[in-house]
Write a protein that binds this DNA or RNA. Structure first.
Length: 261
DNA sequence: CGTGGCTCCTGGCGGC
DNA sequence: TGCCGCCAGGAGCCAC
C-alpha cells in the first residue's frame, strides 16, 4: 500500500511517538519479514538503545539507535502502530518493540510483503539497494539526467525505484493523468519541457498528498486517485475512465485526454 | 535493455 | 452456503 506520502506520515508518527525512548525488548513474530538480518542481530542493534532519529527515503523508513539503523519497508499492507494497551496489539504484528515507558511499537503487515533490515547507515542502504534519489528531494538536474537515458513506458519508469524512489501505482497514475499523458507513452519521445512538467507535477502531487494526510479521498477536486474504481468518470471531463493493465499493474486512464501516442 | 510472467503473502469480493 | 478465481497502493527474479 504505502507510497512516499504514507511513509512520510509514518515517519512523522514514529518521530512523534517513539523518539528518545529506550527500547526494552524486540520480538520477531515472523522471521519471513527479516531482510538479510537475523533476529539476534536486530535485537543487538536495538535493545537497550534509544531511538535517536528518523529518516525516510522513497518508501523506506529508517530509525536510528546509537549503533545501527533499522530500515522498514511496508509492502502493500504494512504500517507502524504505537500503542499502550497490550490487548490492542495489531492483528498482523510481525515485529514488536517494547519501550521502557511501557508503550509498544508494532510493525503490522497483513500480507507480509513488507520487511525490516539493519544497516550501518542510510546512504549505505540506498547504495546496496541501488535506490534512486528520493522523489521529493531530487533536483530537476538529477531528474533529467536519470530519465533522459531511459527507454520504455512512462508509468513503469516513474515506478522504478532505481530511477526515482517513492512513487507507486497510485501516484504514477496521478502524475500521468494530470499531465494528460498516456501511461504507455515512451519515455524517450518526451520533450524536454514535458519532462520538466513531470518533474514539477510529481513534487506537487506528493506534497499535496502529504498535506492531506495521504488519504486518497481527501485529495483535491480534479485528482484521479479518489476515482480509481470500476465505473467511475474522469473528474475533469466526465468521460468514463478506462481500466487497463500497464506492465502488469492496474491503471486507470481518461480516454478523452490521455490519448495513446 | 525492456517487458511479461511468476513468485512471495493474505484476505475480500463477485460469480457460479 | 461453499468453493474458486481474481484482485489489491510492492518488488525481486528470470526468460525471451
Amino acid at each position: 500500500m504505502p507510497e512516499l506520502p504514507s511513509v512520510e506520515l509514518f515517519r512523522q508518527y514514529v518521530q512523534h511517538t517513539s523518539l528518545q525512548q529506550r527500547i526494552a525488548r524486540v520480538r520477531v513474530y515472523d522471521e519471513r519479514i527479516l531482510d538479510g538480518v537475523t533476529e539476534a542481530e536486530l535485537r543487538d542493534a536495538l535493545q537497550g538503545q534509544r531511538l535517536q532519529e528518523t529518516r525516510r527515503h522513497g518508501k523506506y523508513l529508517f530509525v536510528a539507535t546509537d549503533r545501527r539503523w533499522m530500515a522498514m519497508h511496508f509492502g502493500m499492507t504494512g504500517e507502524p502502530v504505537y500503542f499502550r494497551d497490550r490487548n490492542k496489539t495489531p492483528e498482523h504484528t510481525r515485529l514488536l518493540i517494547s519501550f521502557d515507558n511501557e508503550n509498544w511499537l508494532a510493525f503490522d503487515c497483513q500480507r507480509r510483503l513488507g520487511n525490516v533490515a539493519v544497516t550501518p547507515g542510510v546512504d549505505a542502504f540506498i547504495q546496496r539497494k541501488n535506490l534512486g534519489p528520493d522523489a521529493l528531494a531530487i533536483s530537476w538536474t538529477q531528474f533529467r539526467q536519470r530519465f533522459r537515458p531511459k527507454r520504455g513506458m512512462l508509468k513503469p519508469a516513474l515506478m522504478d525505484q532505481h530511477t526515482v524512489a517513492g512513487i507507486g501505482n497510485i501516484y504514477a497514475d496521478e502524475i500521468v493523468f494530470q499531465l494528460g499523458l498516456h501511461p504507455e507513452t515512451s519515455v524517450d519521445v518526451l520533450h524536454h519541457a514535458t519532462l520538466r512538467d513531470i518533474y514539477e507535477i510529481m513534487g506537487d502531487i506528493l506534497q499535496t498528498a502529504i498535506d492531506r494526510g495521504a488519504q486518497v479521498d481527501a485529495l483535491p477536486d480534479g485528482y484521479l486517485a479518489p476515482h480509481r474504481r470500476e465505473g467511475e468518470d474522469c473528474p475533469r471531463c466526465g468521460t468514463p475512465l478506462q481500466h487497463i493493465r500497464v506492465s502488469g499493474r492496474s491503471s486507470y486512464v481518461c480516454p478523452h485526454h490521455q490519448r495513446k501516442p
